[in-house]
Amino acid sequence: MAVQKPFRPRIPAGLAYALHAVLATNRFYRWLAAYVERRPRLYRWFTAGERAAKERLFGCRMCGQCALPATGYACPMTCPKQLRNGPCGGVSADGSCEVDRTLRCVWLTAWDRAESAARGSDLDLLQRPVDNRQWSRSSWVNYWQGRDETIAVAYSGADPHPPMRTAPAPADRAPADRHRAER
């Protein structure tokens, strides 16, 4: 496994937010996701298409639980530490990544892009751990079926310590769960 390299998105943040609006969950997409997921060959083609598009635009690693809408569309999985909750303390004063000083920290890119769209507060969300069973699966299919609803949670004065666990855990509804040995 090669070390991830911070990736600079190839489309501006504004366009990415606009694309998200086009792809936002509705009844049709929900139906489409369920339809695709029931057909393994179609699911493979669909996922390959998603991979091709998102890899090219965002350096997507296919974690299957897309964080892009909350990170100014800069992919945190291209951080060498795959941090989901913001930049580490090793960012140099010039903004470069501690692992590769020739590259800009992906979280700095995320911060600038989110701020430019007045979405900086997205970075305050507490991002829950990645479900590692979802790698190589379609995040669009997961998103349209509502499985991403619990990947992040906001804290507030009224709820200063949101629970880490969700009930039922989003993963328990995911199809990969069929293979879980321990019940």
């Binding site: 909750n85 913001g86 930049p87 580490c88 303390g89 090793g90 960012v91 140099s92 004063a93 903004g95 920290c105 700095l108 911060w111 600038d112 970075l123 305050d124 507490l126 804290y155 200063p160 310590h161 949101p162 880490m164």
Partner: peptide
């Protein structure tokens, strides 16, 4: 690390860890 960029985010990042 209060000194690592982005400076504007560093206090909020600790606030997030406190929420955690």
């Amino acid at each position: 690390n209060p000194f690592a960029p982005p400076a504007a985010l560093r206090a909020r990042r600790l606030a997030k860890k406190v929420a955690a």
